[in-house]
Design a binder for these strands. Structure first.
Lengths: 342, 342
DNA sequence: TTGAAAGCGCTAACAG
DNA sequence: CTGTTAGCGCTTTCAA
């Protein structure tokens, strides 16, 4: 590093080598050089080799701007994220980043959390002309938004969920809910509470699992809360306020479940002796807190979604396939048969 | 939404609105429109207003490629993140995204965890500027990398830490460590353990705080572990293995602290009655688990860093200032005087 | 203060 | 198979 006091400031960029230089050195026309470097079909092998050599020697790096301007792809993918700071989305992003990087695509992040942000994105479409594809992370896209997305003229892939007509990669949320519920039912619980975050597939799994077990789902046992630990804590408090509280609770996700457990501890109740709790995700803290849960491969969902985008951009994606990755019950210490002594 | 089975595929892009269209609608020349939209000086206020109005009405989005090709900025900022899925970095990203968006800058995410990924970034960002600036999130930048960045002609800002000559925004890590240590010392602890993740400022605060209190820092009381809950658990296990275990522990961060507490619980020890634990961050789970900690404004650090970049790109940043945001001790339930009954 | 015109570096027809 | 020729959309001299 220079001792220059101004060294933190930007210096002058290095001299640029253009395709023209490469073409000249290889003794071909600019157009041929372009074709040779791109994976174009009709180029003599020898020519191609010569051009590549020249490019190599000159340490040539193409200008993405110029390429794009002339009609090529941008080499960029927009990623729509509602909550970047949540573990789930962070994992999704890590997986995506890895796959996109491997495909030589840059990841441009757009946060679309609240309604204003959504509106800001879909109305203004700041991604216009800036990306080749859009990856939507676990957010529902309504018809109007879908229409806007379509007007972008880019490929769309969904990760961590499933949205109408787009290719997607996610888990079977209903199935995951069933795994959790069936586990509780197997243990012998009949009065099972639900702490939902949305009226989603996991919530509906609660109903159908109960119904299938010949138990009438009671509305008072289902409560919907804001996402997160605090929400979970509040939901559990509500359930404890019931004349007859449940003997087990299925929480929307691990963080919500952890919140529920806090409420139980504060109320002097033991988990799982007095009440069983199960979540979904297999968040790192679930292992740490010995939380029984239904694990889902989050990073993998991101990775696959990234691969799907890459394939779509190559034109290799024929059908809007919806990939469903497996979930699995992880037995730990927060569930046991009802009224189990110790 | 169309019922077309192919509707998931990219549709034809909506006709792109060019600067030309804006200029025409505003009744000025292309050049004037460009100047009006850019913050150029010599444009009549009325003209500028008219052009802006036209742009607004037409929902105009500039083509970054064309702008860049013609010598302008890219309107993009690279963000280097080591671990996107960790809460700390997610928060930083949320803050950054908000600030960059407000400045009309796009955020391009690059993960730079291991050495290979770093190399990939510094090699590939190459020669051609894909971004106008780089925000480095809490990672060290070596001299070669620094040189590379400088030669690319991009501005650099650091968030969540402090790196050599760059403008940065972070906290006083040593100070935060002192807040934690002083709290423990105030409570009367003399034998205080350290679970470090690095040989960093927080770790050094452990030493100086003890020394200042007239206590000789014993090496066996300081243990370094891998980041995260598992690391914390392991570190605590090591400390418990000592002939004379500490009566309190300062953990590098909340997640590490949570891991330590797990080990204590499993060992049948009570927190804080048998052993006090304090972390740093004020992670959402800290509130949930009643963990005493030193809070730092993470999202705010990201936000400020974003503002700094925007300023630097406008040329409004005169000096490489290093902003230090305040931390504060958050008293909760995992610390108490040593040997405190109940 | 504004307009006209010249590229920025590359890709994609269209000829040869 | 390869060369020629237009632009892509924007920022900038250079004049007016």
């Amino acid at each position: 590093m220079t001792g220059d006091t101004q060294s933190w400031r930007r210096a002058a960029p290095a001299s640029p080598v253009t395709l023209d230089d490469v073409a000249r050195r290889a003794g071909v026309s600019l157009a041929t050089a372009s074709r040779a470097l791109g994976e174009h079909p009709h180029v003599a092998a020898a020519t191609r080799a010569r051009v590549r050599e020249a490019a190599e020697a000159l340490d040539y790096v193409a200008s993405p701007e110029a390429a794009r301007l002339a009609g090529g792809p941008t080499g960029r993918v927009a990623v729509l994220v509602p909550h970047p700071s949540r573990w789930f989305f962070g994992e999704l992003i890590e997986g995506l980043e890895a796959a996109l990087r491997a495909a030589d695509l840059d990841l441009v992040l757009f946060r679309v959390g609240g309604p204003e942000e959504r509106a800001a994105f879909f109305d203004r479409l700041p991604a216009r002309r800036k990306v080749d594809a859009v990856v939507v992370l676990a957010v529902a896209v309504d018809d109007a938004e879908h229409a806007r997305l379509a007007s972008l003229g880019v490929d769309v892939v969904v990760a961590g969920g499933r949205v109408a007509p787009y290719p997607s990669v996610g888990i079977d949320d209903h199935g995951a809910g069933r795994q959790a519920m069936d586990h509780l039912l197997h243990l012998g619980h009949r009065r099972i509470g639900l702490i939902a975050v949305d009226d989603d597939a996991r919530a509906s799994a609660w109903r159908t699992a109960l119904a299938d077990a010949g138990i009438e789902p009671e509305d008072e046992l289902a409560t919907t809360v804001a996402w997160g630990g605090e929400g979970g804590a509040e939901g559990m408090a509500r359930l404890l306020g019931l004349r007859t509280p449940p003997t087990a609770v299925f929480a929307h996700d691990d963080e919500t479940a952890l919140g529920a457990i806090r409420t139980l501890r504060r109320a002097g109740l033991r988990v799982p002796e007095d009440l069983s709790v199960i979540g979904v995700d297999d968040h790192p803290l679930a292992a740490l807190t010995d939380l029984t849960t239904v694990a889902q491969p989050v990073r993998e969902q991101g990775r696959r979604a990234g691969e799907l985008v890459a394939a779509a951009l190559r034109g290799d994606l024929q059908e809007p396939l919806a990939e469903v990755l497996p979930t699995r019950l992880v037995l730990r210490g927060t569930t046991s048969p009802p009224g189990a002594p110790r």
